[in-house]
Each structure stands twice: as structure tokens, then as C-alpha cells.
């Protein structure tokens, strides 16, 4: 993190694997690719791409740190892995790195979402993870985009143009998927369905947040943080202002890199 050392941080998540390169406390580059249950390949893939983007050769890497749900699957012999970092620690450190006023990070990932509160040094104070029924919000979002025949970005934009309030079943993503399709088959406008989807996600995340005291400033990480509709609804539901940085998906990877020499 200093003396010109370049450190790589990898976040091997359920849906996507992310890589960042950090030098002298600055982000040099980043890359992401689908994990597709071949974590080693995905890791090598994103690492190479990040190196290429930064114009850095692999031998200049002084270390690599991995977080994410699949972190233990990366063979430490094939890659020069310095250590693994639990997601909640990586999220805390990454969020603090990007915004030194952050004290809570809500990470909405592919399969798991959690809320982590931490102090000014990035030491974790409290963690809460979703319950089993609320699993898979990122997967859900991707499926819904496919079902509605749009990209994930378009799904977000559509949600912002909703005029009528409709709802999907709240219990789990499968019943929500089923009801979104039912709404589609009733002829409900796609914008209203997209908004119902965003509200479902925000609602489940907000429900989880009731278990933990949210310390200001609250930031949101993960792929779904890029949906303005989700963020809008989440703010309303937790009654707290949240902010989303430029690289919400890379918070974990950044934290892993920043945890150089940090906890296992």
C-alpha cells in the first residue's frame, strides 16, 4: 500500500469475481468477470485484465489478497496469494478506503446481503447477514432482467419511470419472480413491474437492517447499489440517507487489498 508496492485485491463472489490493483493508496485499475463456479479461472481472468488495464506486469505485484464467499477455493500455490480476508472485514475496510466518513456498509451481493458497522479505523463493530429466505437478491435481479427482456441497467431506469404502485410477494425471490411474471401476464406496465422488483429488494435489505444499529454515514456496496430505484426505496425504508460511491461492486476487493497483512 506504500513504497510503490502494487497490491491486488480479489473478491470471488457468487455471481462475479472482482479485482483491483492498488498502489500508494490509489486505485490503479479494476476488472470483473462472471465467477461461473470456476473460481480459479475467474480469478486469473480478472487479475490479468486488471494488470493489462494498468499496464503492469504480473511480476510487479507484491501481494494478492482474496475475499468473497469463494475465497477458499483459490489454490494458493498457483497464484501468489498472501492471505484471505473474511467478507465483512474486507467490506468495512473497503468502504472506509473509498469514503473515510463511512461507518456502515450495506453490501447487496449476488446471493448474500449484509450490513456491517465499523469504527473510524475500519474495525468491525457489528455484522448482520440476511436470513435464508431472503437469499439471492442479485441472482433475482439478473433473472428478472432476463424475464423482462432488458439489461440490468435498463431495469433500473425503467423502475424510475413507474407510475402505478404494484407489489410482488415478499416472502422470497422465487415467489417474487413468480408474481412478477404474473403481473406481466396481467398486462401490467413493465416500468411498474421493474419498480416492484426494486422495492422488493430494498424491502428485504431494509428488514435485515432492523437488526443492527446503522451508524452514519451509511454507504451501499455491491452490484445492486448501481440501481437508483433500489437505493431510493432503501433510503425511504430504513429512514436513513445512504450514499453510493463510484465503485460499489469493488468495495470488497479494495478492502482485501487494503487488508495487506490483515486478519485471516
Amino acid at each position: 500500500m506504500n513504497n510503490g508496492k502494487i497490491v491486488a485485491g480479489i473478491d470471488a463472489g457468487h455471481l462475479n469475481t472482482k479485482a483491483v490493483l492498488i498502489k500508494d493508496g490509489r486505485i490503479l485499475s479494476y476488472a470483473k468477470a462472471p465467477t461461473a463456479c470456476d473460481v480459479l479461472a475467474a480469478t486469473q481472468n480478472v487479475l490479468n485484465e486488471a494488470l493489462k488495464n494498468a499496464g503492469v506486469s504480473p511480476d510487479r505485484l507484491s501481494g494478492m489478497y482474496i475475499t468473497g464467499v469463494f475465497r477458499n477455493m483459490v489454490e494458493t500455490r498457483t497464484l501468489n496469494v498472501g492471505g484471505t480476508v473474511p467478507e465483512y472485514i474486507a467490506d468495512a475496510k473497503g468502504a472506509l478506503f473509498l469514503d473515510n466518513k463511512a461507518r456502515t456498509v450495506i453490501d447487496i451481493g449476488g446471493n448474500v446481503h449484509m450490513a456491517i458497522s465499523f469504527d473510524e479505523s475500519g474495525n468491525v463493530l457489528d455484522v448482520i447477514e440476511n436470513d435464508k429466505c431472503a437469499e439471492g437478491l442479485g441472482i433475482f435481479y439478473r433473472n428478472m432482467a432476463k424475464v423482462l427482456g432488458v439489461t440490468e441497467e435498463e431495469l433500473s431506469e425503467l423502475a424510475l419511470r413507474a407510475t402505478k404502485r404494484v407489489s410482488v410477494a415478499i416472502q422470497c425471490r422465487l415467489s417474487a419472480e413468480s408474481e412478477a411474471i404474473d403481473l406481466m401476464c396481467q398486462g401490467v406496465e413493465i416500468e411498474d413491474i421493474a419498480d416492484a422488483i426494486a422495492r422488493f429488494i430494498a424491502d428485504r435489505v431494509a428488514a435485515m437492517c432492523t437488526y443492527v444499529a446503522l451508524r452514519k454515514k451509511v454507504v451501499v456496496a455491491g452490484g445492486l447499489a448501481k440501481s437508483q430505484a433500489v437505493i431510493k426505496h432503501l433510503q425511504n425504508m430504513i429512514k436513513e440517507e445512504v450514499s453510493v460511491g463510484d465503485l460499489p461492486e469493488y468495495v470488497g476487493a479494495i478492502g482485501a487489498a487494503v487488508s495487506y497483512g490483515g486478519a485471516k
Binding site: 457468487h14 462472471p34 461461473a36 470456476d38 441472482i139 433473472n143 422465487l174 415467489s175 413468480s178
Partner: peptide, 18 residues
């Protein structure tokens, strides 16, 4: 309702394991 979407979940699962 608890048995919803088995068919569709096959696609999701296939996608997850590429």
C-alpha cells in the same frame, strides 16, 4: 407456493454453473 419456479430455477442453476 413453496414449490414455485422449479422449472425456471433449472435455468438459473444452469447459468450459475455455466
Amino acid at each position: 407456493k413453496c414449490a414455485t419456479g422449479i422449472g425456471r430455477s433449472m435455468e438459473t442453476f444452469a447459468d450459475l454453473v455455466k
